[in-house]
Nucleic acid binder design. Structure first.
Length: 514
RNA sequence: GCGGGUGUAGCUCAAUGGUAGAGUUCUAGCCUUCCAAGCUAGCUGUGCGGGUUCGAUCCCCGUCACCCGCUCCA
């Protein structure tokens, strides 16, 4: 076991230095994220987005949609890819979740050890049933380690003398004989408890067993369910993608870390359908495309890493083929480690095959470009967390700067900032508010703009720093005579003068920079 | 789910078994010609529920939420 005297990690980059506590406080203070049902004491695993949080989230969402559906990437052949969008219902026929493997496969029975206070997935535990004792071990343990443990417990080390049984196959009445995987005594394991991660609900006013339904645990299935409808209605040809953004629900055992693991969250998923022989090529294509996208919204290279899943952590739909790769972000609570931001999975033809079998509908593709070959397309799925994306962007932007009055500023990339600019009359008289109002009315047709007239200029700059507004335009006495304003850049606090006519072009120029 | 910690104003924090206070924010007004300046006034609070007590924000029990560790995370 690891030593308790492990050295403390020294913060190296900005996202590591951000104390979560301060970020959460800022989010509440300025209206990015509130606890859900705050006035009732909150609800574990649920969060609300405030006025600025929803702007930020919408910006991220819209940029994803644009990069997928409106202006999809250029493919290897130099032609733009073909991707269409859908918006499917959160509740679908429950048979869909049986086919997808979520009913049954999506609950993980857990056992707790009363002695060691440790918890295990029941299906990861095996029991060595000997004459003298039954010893529980983690599945996949090396023979050496098993023998070491048996020796320690004073038991025979000849493994062939034991019958090896998976814990879920052991009768609960016999749990009293078992020594837990890390325990010294027998009978400390609790019976397996079901953790079904899908939220159940009832369709219709009368609750009967027939009316049981589920809130979707992923948006992806809505895409597979509409695969045939999309093919029949929108003239797409292989390869092509279907994209969807929406809420998903998982009854997480332990919601943690602010909005990182919540029970209601938002996903941005795209299912890319292709010929099986091209799956590997597209898998690599999308990893690169998605990494580039995160960079384009202001997530720095040093905060990101690409990590391939080990075989034993692959989900039920990705056991074969290219597997799964995560794009991970260095969150404040994982640093110096990383946490999942997006998963890119090769789902092979698992889902369509399942739905074809369960629904009885033919879902094979007739490919006229491939000499009328019939095949079940393979699927590459870039599935990003929008909610996690917001958190990553917030953490990335949080910048401590003791030299300025606010003590910090939010360094959002200008094009994702919730407010693009603020219009500030230097003082609230001498005709300045009127000029400010006029400029505000003009600019708000194009961008989310703040108009702030109250209090002294320093306080207003400080407030804009805290909400990450990249540009402040200030109307002063000179404006009244020469029709120019100062523009103050958030990160440098540097000012320059631009003419009133040039404010909109200035914003357009700076907001289109990547 | 287990163990530990925390819960007082929007925020940061004080205090007390007997009418809860400061800074800051916020609001209004004055003032103010570029970075939370100054003056005046004002709003807002003991997470929730029970118990002990003449009286509980404080003591006790429960609960909820958040944080840390474990566990989990298709």
């Amino acid at each position: 076991m690891s030593s308790s005297a492990a050295p403390k990690q020294t913060p190296e980059t900005n996202s590591e230095a951000v104390p979560m506590k301060d970020l959460v406080a800022l989010c509440k203070r300025r209206g990015f994220v509130f606890p859900a049902s705050d006035i009732y004491g909150g609800l574990n695993g649920f969060w609300d987005f405030g006025p600025l949080g929803v702007e930020l989230k919408n910006n991220l969402r819209d940029l994803w949609w644009k990069s997928m559906v409106i202006t999809p990437p250029i493919g290897p052949d130099g032609e733009p890819l073909s991707i269409v969008g859908i918006d499917s219902a959160i509740i679908q026929n429950p048979k869909a979740w049986v086919a997808s493997g979520h009913v049954g496969g999506f609950s993980d029975p857990m056992v707790d050890c009363r002695e060691t206070k440790l918890r295990y997935r029941a299906d990861h535990v095996v029991v060595y049933q000997g004459d003298k004792a039954w010893v529980a071990m983690m599945e996949g343990e090396e023979t050496d380690d098993v023998q070491k443990r048996l020796k320690k417990l004073g038991l025979p080390q000849d493994i062939s003398a034991y019958k090896i049984v998976a814990l879920p196959d052991v009768d609960v009445a016999e749990y009293g004989k078992i020594i837990g995987p890390d325990a010294k005594e027998t009978g400390t394991l609790t019976p397996p408890r079901d953790f079904n991660l899908m939220f159940e609900t009832r369709v219709g006013a009368l609750a009967t067993s027939d009316s049981l339904a589920y809130l979707r645990p992923e948006t992806a299935q809505g895409i597979f369910l509409n695969y045939k409808n999309v093919l029949d209605s929108s003239r797409v040809k292989m390869p092509f993608g279907i994209a969807q953004i929406g809420k998903a629900f998982r009854n997480e055992v332990t919601p943690r870390n602010f909005i990182y693991r919540s029970r209601e969250f938002e996903q941005m998923e795209m299912e890319w359908f292709c010929h099986p022989s091209e799956a590997k090529m597209w898998f690599e294509f999308w990893i690169e495309a998605r990494r580039a996208w995160w960079k384009s919204v202001g997530v720095s290279d040093s905060s990101l890493q690409i990590r391939k899943h080990d075989q034993d952590e692959l989900s039920h739909y990705a056991k074969t083929g290219e597997g799964t790769v995560d794009i991970e972000f260095k969150f404040p609570f994982t640093a110096p480690g990383f946490g999942e931001l997006e998963g890119i999975a090769h789902r092979s033809n698992f889902d369509l095959t399942q739905h074809q079998e369960h629904s009885g509908q033919k879902l094979e593709y007739l490919d006229q470009a491939r000499d009328n070959e019939r095949y079940m397309p393979h699927v590459i799925e870039p599935a990003a967390g929008l909610t996690r994306g917001v958190l990553a962007v917030l953490a990335e932007a949080y910048t401590i700067d003791p030299s300025r009055p606010s003590g910090l500023y939010m360094n959002f990339a200008p094009h994702i900032a919730p407010k693009k600019a603020a219009i500030l009359p230097l003082i609230a008289k001498d005709g300045m508010p009127e000029v400010a109002q006029k400029l505000y009315m003009e600019l708000r047709e194009h961008y989310a703009i703040d108009l702030d007239i109250k209090q002294n200029i320093g306080k207003r700059y400080a407030r804009q720093d805290e909400i990450g507004t990249p540009y402040c335009f200030t109307i002063d006495n000179d404006t009244m005579t020469d029709q120019t304003v100062t523009v103050r850049e958030r990160n440098t606090m540097a000012q320059e003068r631009v003419s009133l006519d040039n404010v909109l072009p200035y914003l357009q120029k700076n907001l289109s920079k990547k």
